[in-house]
Design a protein around this nucleic acid. Structure first.
Lengths: 237, 237
DNA sequence: CATTTGGCTTGATAAATATCAAGCGCAAAA
DNA sequence: TTTTGCGCTTGATATTTATCAAGCCAAATG
């Protein structure tokens, strides 16, 4: 494990309050690996051997059933994923693949569970992370069940605009087909949904999005604190 | 708080391993209340003042947006709900109402957070519960995104049949309109979905469900461990 | 006992979403 | 530079799901 990655991990909310001793033990068992794009890192149903931390690049979490597939989330630096499975020693519920050249820190789940048993500060940090994960998924479910696909897209764009600094124009960070899947629609429908938002000042050219009048778009999107708001700290999956 | 409720709470996985001292402190601040049917216990967005535990009756968790409403879950004895919000001291993401005459233990979130800080066994139990909650919601999301409404119904029926002991006939535990909302469809569509499962040996008369040939139904439902399987222990919400 | 209420069902229709089949356009590879 | 591939778009169509409007039935009410 390279020295440059360790301080990065140490600063994450999840590891910040651990004792130095337990942190070092945990890091000793871990390692760093670089992956090319489009590599499947883990598969749904596999035993959860490692807790993963993305330090460079990006990773897609997805799930499949009956020859269908859906994007559940994309994980960007510096977030962990599959924490719940690692802690519970339960099989992964999602698969993961790199979207681009990516660098991952991998900590054996066994060591994570040991640290969880021994280090109280770590156990508490895990609670905070898991509570956040849970709330994120609940919000996502509410969006899926209460909103139409156009409404989901409109809210996604408003959230992204806010996240990227609030400028009228910003770039999509994921491919449209993946965005469509994430939002629970087909790529064809995403194209049409984008066009149907034109009257609300939305235009998308390639990956470049322009929302000329966020307030106008908000009259359609009706963003809600309890669906679109984000809790503090870093997101984990 | 009545004495009869305390041992019941003590036996829950969440409280089982707490020190007697911390448990008693936590119980001293709590109280028990009986509610008539159809009472709104908490509302989306409210500050999370209490951790709730259902000891009798049943409670519906639901969420609303833009004049629409959806059932997220039903909580039955002896489960807790709104643990994540209590721990994070964050607003509720879901509302809750009694479905029938119900009895609830209510523990001030403040006291729960104090116990979480002081009692390491409790902190660890919370991790286990939250991990489970998280995994439940992820499975639910997968079902919503990967399956049609008929497939969701078919799998729901197979899960219920298993849960109630595996007999060919069993009773629905929630009203059809709530089941429809839980499954992400309208009541009208639930009626039609039920009829469309007749060729697979499903018949529903009132609340009485008969699945004459589960294997046949399973050829349509294609139940999956990673969507329909349930983790060990008690479910929390 | 009659009446009312509310949940459920059914049919007809409308809207939302998916599928299929081209074609377009950009970017990577030859 | 040309070619190729792939993601994106578009139009036509099919499927799924929702909405609207009765009507039915059983449980609750007077």
């Amino acid at each position: 494990m390279r020295e440059t990655d360790i301080p990065l991990v140490r600063e994450l909310p999840l590891f910040r309050d651990m004792s130095e001793e337990h942190f070092e033990t945990l890091m000793r068992g871990g390692y760093v690996q670089n992956f090319p794009p489009h590599v499947e890192l883990i598969s749904e149903g596999d035993p959860s051997d490692f807790l993963h931390i993305v330090t460079e690049g990006s990773v897609e979490l997805f799930a499949g059933w009956n020859d269908r597939e859906t994007t559940m989330a994309t994980v960007e630096p510096h977030s962990t994923f599959i924490l719940a499975a690692s802690i519970k020693d339960a099989p992964y519920l999602m698969s993961a693949r790199t979207l681009e050249k990516s660098r991952l820190v991998m900590l054996p789940s066994m060591d994570v569970r040991t640290a969880f048993e021994k280090d109280n500060a770590f156990a508490r940090a895990i609670v905070t992370e898991l509570a956040q994960c849970y709330r994120s998924v609940v919000k996502n479910t509410k969006g899926l069940k209460l909103r139409s696909s156009i409404e989901r897209l409109a809210n996604y764009l408003l959230r992204q605009q806010k996240k990227t600094g609030g400028d009228k124009s910003f770039d999509l960070t994921i491919e449209k087909r993946r965005l469509a899947s994430y939002l629970g629609m087909t790529p064809e429908n995403l194209s049409r949904a984008i066009k149907s938002l034109q009257p609300y000042g939305v235009s998308i050219d390639g990956i470049r999005v322009t929302v000329s009048d966020p307030d106008d778009l908000a009259t359609l999107a009706k963003p809600s604190m309890w669906i679109d708001g984000h809790d503090a700290d870093t997101k984990t999956f």
